Simulated scan of single mutants.
Amino acid sequence: MTDSRPAASHTTLGTAFVLLWCTGYIAGKLMVAHAAPMTALVWRFGVAGLVFAALALAARAPWGNARSVLHSAVTGVLMLALQFGGVYLALSWDASAGVAALVIGTMPMVVAVLAVAGGDERLAPVQWAGLLLGVAGVALVVADRIDGTTEWAAWLALLAGLAGISFGTVYQKRHASQGDLRAGLAVQNLAATAVLLPGALWLEGFRFAHASGFYLPMLWTVVVNSLGGFALLFVLIRRGAATRVAALFFLMPPVTALFGSWTLGEHLTALKLGGFALAAVGVWLVTRPTSHAAR
């Protein structure tokens, strides 16, 4: 009889990851109301990087050779600096949250194409169907939040963010998922900080408010999202195929919509609930062990 414990473990980790990750959108929205976008990210990634570095040093964790450190740095620039920098800039340029969620929500499909094209994975037809259902679910969730006023610069920023998280996920699976968790995440966060710091200083004047409205959500993004969420993502990528892990991002807009209805008073409609159901079915089709065909 097949042991179901690995699948159950992946489901538990995946559920925890989605819940932790989605709180970051709420905290990020609160944080950028009191800080310039790149400045907010420098605070988030800089503090998280120092905490991970302290944990690695305290445990005398191995940092790896120069090549492994470089791979972790490239992953950090792609998954952290490029992804979140693109999203936060787009939001600061008046892109709606719906447009941002729709663009980033297509990430699992992009990762699947990259993984298959690169020879890393093979997907069954039912998994491709699951990816399409996931995209449809995301579209339904954010449909009533999309407008036609988004500027081209915001679209380019969002596409840059999509490229960052997509290429970063595949890159980390190939090159940066075997080292120590604490050391790897320290390098990733500090590399992202180094890339974003010049923009935060020279373009934004490192502008943020000395107020609890900034510090509290910033600490949440550090402790819950960076320390918790990215640690779980690191483990999931290490254990599973890139497409299987990426499919979890289909659930981000629906779960974020639920959190938004509870914390920000956003309206939860039947259309959103239908999109949630479609996205959940899509994730199940992509990630169920019997249909997984990674190699």
Rank of each mutant, 00 (worst) to 15 (best):
A66M: 12
V69D: 01
Q83S: 06
A66G: 11
V69T: 12
S72V: 00
L55G: 00
R60N: 07
R60K: 14
V42M: 10
A81R: 06
L82V: 14
G64H: 10
L78N: 07
G76T: 08
L55D: 00
V77E: 10
A81G: 05
G76K: 07
L57D: 02
W63I: 05
A54P: 07
A73V: 05
L78P: 00
L55H: 00
L70E: 04
L55I: 15
G49I: 05
A81D: 08
F52Q: 04
R44C: 11
H71F: 15
T39K: 12
L82A: 14
L57S: 08
R44P: 03
V69F: 01
L55S: 01
A73L: 04
A48W: 05
S68W: 04
T39P: 01
F45M: 06
V69K: 15
R67A: 14
V47G: 04
A40H: 10
S68D: 14
A54L: 15
H71N: 14
A48G: 01
M79I: 11
S68H: 14
A59E: 14
S72Y: 11
V47P: 00
A56N: 11
A73R: 01
F52D: 02
V47K: 01
G49V: 03
A48S: 13
G64T: 09
A59D: 15
A61E: 11
A81T: 05
R44S: 11
L80C: 10
V69H: 07
H71Y: 15
A40D: 12
L57P: 00
P62R: 09
R67H: 07
L55V: 13
R60D: 10
A53S: 11
A66V: 09
Q83H: 13
L78S: 08
A53R: 13
P62V: 04
W43Q: 01
V77Q: 07
V74L: 15
L70M: 14
A40G: 14
S68N: 10
L82M: 15
T75L: 01
N65L: 02
V69M: 15
A54E: 11
W43S: 02
N65K: 12
A66D: 09
N65M: 01
F52N: 04
L57V: 11
S68Q: 15
N65A: 13
A40M: 09
L41N: 09
S72N: 15
F84I: 06
L78G: 08
A54D: 09
F45N: 02
G46C: 10
L82P: 01
A73G: 14
N65Y: 00
V47T: 14
G64E: 12
M79A: 09
V42A: 09
R67N: 03
S72P: 00
A53L: 15
S68P: 00
V77C: 13
L82K: 11
L41C: 02
P62W: 03
L41E: 03
G46H: 08
L57I: 10
V51T: 08
F84N: 12
V42Y: 05
A61D: 07
G49K: 08
L82I: 11
A73M: 12
